[in-house]
Design a protein around this nucleic acid. Structure first.
Lengths: 118, 118
DNA sequence: TTATATAATTTCCAAGTGGAAACTAATGGC
DNA sequence: GCCATTAGTTTCCACTTGGAAATTATATAA
């Protein structure tokens, strides 16, 4: 796969004239917590409570909303184990795992550009 | 640069335990139009009106807000040419250009995963 | 004299988003 | 009988975001 700078810029310019994959991706990674949920699941399947705890505990409603949206877009699967109390496990699909490259680039950029407001 | 899948996942898992570069990047690419403004500027400096027209014309206030935020974070520079009528040109900084890798991964993912809701 | 062009800024408002708190369901343990 | 547990759902509310419209500034053109 060709990934040198000049080639990237050429393809990004071409995409601007079409529908644009960037916009499609932004539509999937939409909402305040969505990208971070994907990041959590990259290290393996997780239960509802584990995801919530890892993210500094946003409200249950927020997590549920985001998980539902990701499920509808086939980024994650949801498995309910009919036990008491209930156990629900979320796991990335193949499409979901393929977001790793984006997350990885975000990680690198963020680490190389720490906050520096004057 | 090591970018195979296993190595990426290992580093993403490690980052989860620190502050996290992903969150830092998300803070920069925040807001509905921010990422698309960066995409526009990757192909070269642009005037205010050009950016607005390229983005299906969101309100002037919205564009101004986003451009100001990007300027404060040193992702873009703003150059005013004291002419009548005024001309203002926005251009990516080095830090701004270095976001190209993220945008490129987003482009590829978006093109390889078209919408497929049932 | 008045319209035009460009890049804003300001005010006001509608819609969207996320959070808090209360409630549910079902079973096992005390 | 009552409580704890897990993963929600529901209702309501506050805050944020973005958009519309009016306004500004100023030299040039008609």
């Amino acid at each position: 796969m060709e990934t040198n700078g000049a080639e990237q810029l050429k393809r990004l310019a071409a995409a601007r004239r079409r529908g644009c994959g960037v916009e499609r991706t932004l539509a999937v990674l939409d909402g305040k917590w969505t990208t971070l949920i994907v990041r959590e699941l990259l290290s393996g399947p997780k239960r509802f409570g584990e995801i919530r705890a890892a993210l500094d505990s946003p409200s249950a409603k927020t997590i549920t909303d985001r998980l539902r949206a990701l499920e509808h877009q086939r980024i994650i699967t949801r498995t309910v184990y009919p036990e008491i109390p209930p156990r629900v496990v979320y796991e990335l699909t193949g499409d979901g795992h393929s977001l790793a490259g984006i997350l990885y680039e975000m990680l690198i950029w963020g680490e190389e550009h720490p906050v520096s407001e004057p």
